[in-house]
Structures are given as C-alpha cells and as structure tokens.
Write a protein that binds this DNA or RNA. Structure first.
Lengths: 182, 182
DNA sequence: AAACCCATGTAACGCGTTACATGATTAT
DNA sequence: ATAATCATGTAACGCGTTACATGGGTTT
C-alpha cells in the first residue's frame, strides 16, 4: 500500500521540508498515528523524486552543509488527492502487544496479571498527562473555538484522538482491574 | 521482537493446535489485536520446533490427509512466561491510516472531509454491531458474572477492549463531524 | 459435479528496524 | 572543548503480504 509515500506527500503539501524535517515531524504531532525512521525516509524521497511526485532544491546551510528542500509537484498533489478520497475498509487487526498478553491471561497467575495491568495503567496515565500538556500548548496557539479553517486543525484532530485513545484505555483498565484484585 | 513466536506459544499453552487451527484463531477472538497469515505461521512453527519450544505429532485425518498437531514444551512454557512477565513501554506510534488522512485535512475540501469522516463513522458503527453480537454470544456461554478463573476470560478481555475501541472511535467522530458540516 | 473447507508448504517482494558511516553546525 | 542537534546516506536483517503450488475431505 505504500502508506509512507502518502505520508510524505501529505507533509510536503503543507509546506517544503528536508528529509531531516520529515523525520522530525514523525517524532511530533503525527507520530501518534504514523512514523518512519530516516533510513526509510531517504530512499523513499529518492523514489518519489524519480516518480515525479516531488522535487528538490539544494540549499547550503552555513558554509558547507548541504540540505535538500523537497516540495510536492502537481502530479504529486493529484496522487495525494486520490489517496485522500479513497474510502478504505477498517483493518481487521490493530496490533497491540499488551492486548495479546491480556488474551493469554489464563497462562498467568492472578498476581502476575495484576502487576501487568497495573503497570499498563501507570504508563497510560503518564502518556495521557503528556498529551494533555501538549493540548494545553495547542490551545494557546489557536483562536478558540477551533474550526475547519485553522492551520492547526489537523494537529487538533490527532491530539484529541490520541487523548481519547488513552482515556479509553485507562477507563477499560480500571474497569478490569477489580477482577484481578480479589 | 518476534511477537508471532509468543502469540503461537500462548495459543499452544491453551491447547494443542495444528498450523491450520492457529491460522483460524487469528481470524477469530485474538484477531482484533494480533494476526498472521498461514505463509508466516508454517515457517515459524518449523523454527519453534527447531528451537525446542514446541513439538508435534502427525495425525491422519480420514485416509491420507496428514496434519501436525503441535504442543508447547517445558522450555516453551518458560519462554512464554518470561515474555508475559516483561513490562514493555507503550509504543510511540499505533499506526492508523485513517488518522493519517485526518491529519492532512487541510489538503481536503470541507465536503471531502465530511464524506471521509461519515464513511468512517458508518464503518465503525457496523463493526461495533458485529462485536456486540459476538459479546452476546459470549454472554450465553459464561457463568455471569465472569471472573479471572473462567476459561473465557481472555476472550472477554479482548472483546470488551475491542468494543471500547470502537465506541471511542464513534464518540470522537461524532464530536468532530459538526465542525465539518457547517 | 461444483463449491467450499481442511491442510501444508514455498517464493518473491515490499515494509520497517537496527546498525554502520560520515560530517557540519550550534549551544553550553 | 564538548555535547547536542542538524543533515544525509547505505547495509543487513527480520517481519509481513501476496501469489504460487498442491492435494484431501465434506457439503450441496
């Protein structure tokens, strides 16, 4: 399916970026739902350039350091739009290693299961706190209430969804934990 | 990380299975959170046998059809327990192609975004219905209320979590949709 | 007879991570 | 000076999907 291809096209449609910048983006906002390492990104950028979906200018940073600033082409924008307007089926499987362990709870003692779930709850709560902080930072940047036209609307969507995900996890863990305590 | 290794060990710790049976399991209960195709399972079974974590007997079905019934060894059970008792960090990224599209909402028109979100909502509701049906089927099999000791507790955990996941998705989509309508 | 399910395997290819490799620039 | 960050690439390996390949058993 080459999702990375579309992830890069989507990022470049927001603005010009270097390979390094793209790597950085995957560590931030969209990183909750998609990411890739630089070792995968650089070859993909080369491929997309060969295919004519993106192009670049070489820029000198300082005196020697070269960087390539990529931008999306008309052909690339068309390709992106095609993907954005494709309705895909929901994946059968959303892989989650913790839930795989949970499924095998009959292979654990009650104490072991309790520790596993408690550890997961702590980590999910910590993650929710981090996301809440980021949401507060976003709130300060936007003209409340946010709307479709805000340049931060995409960020708002992924942040609220990630927060929903963690809250849902926490709620479920807290609902299951009493069954592992007594 | 070889998660498939542990998925197979976990399944075999519940009972003896053929490669075909394991493939079937991934289409059912645990399929919401982990799965693999038979083309990946058969080589992995061979590898686990070589490593001494599982073993098999050949059984004749009918007159000619051979199948291999696998079971976990003591060494395999130890390996499984080690994994079950390892606390892993929450993954930074839980890949979700729909959310990647959502992040690129600024590349869509309001109408396109509305259609995308509406389509997703319909699909998530349909999935929730299927999961609810499966939950009702499970309810009939168990001595209500379910407890840690029930042989269906693992199934109960993954089903309730999958239902929570879909409900959370639906709730979030319904919260976002008004911003794409007006 | 045909369709569907049971049953096992391999081959080719693409996706993704870790490690290898190098060097410039900026902040402390 | 030193550490952190910016910047780009390749190599090796493992994971995962699609397709190729074969055949037996059961149900309609």
């Amino acid at each position: 399916m080459r999702v990375l291809k579309y992830a890069i096209l989507g990022l470049l449609d927001k603005g010009e970026l270097s390979g390094y910048d793209i790597t950085s983006q995957f560590k931030k906002e969209i990183g909750q739902f998609w990411s890739a390492k630089h070792s995968q990104i650089y070859p993909e950028l080369k491929k997309l350039t060969d295919e004519g979906f993106i192009e670049y200018q070489t820029v000198i940073q300082g005196t020697k350091l070269e960087k390539k600033i990529y931008s999306i082409t008309k052909s690339g924008k068309q390709e992106l739009d095609k993907w954005l307007n494709t309705f895909s089926p929901i994946p059968e499987t959303a892989k989650d290693e913790f839930m795989l362990k949970a499924y095998f709870i009959s292979s654990m003692s009650k104490e072991e299961a309790n520790e596993l779930f408690t550890d997961q709850l702590i980590k999910r709560k910590r993650k929710l706190n981090h996301l809440d902080e980021r949401f507060n930072e976003l709130q300060e940047k936007i003209d409340d209430p946010i709307s479709f036209d805000s340049p931060h609307f995409g960020h708002f969507l992924v942040l609220t969804k990630a927060i929903e995900r963690e809250k849902g996890y926490i709620e479920w863990l807290e609902r299951m934990l009493p069954m592992l305590n007594k």
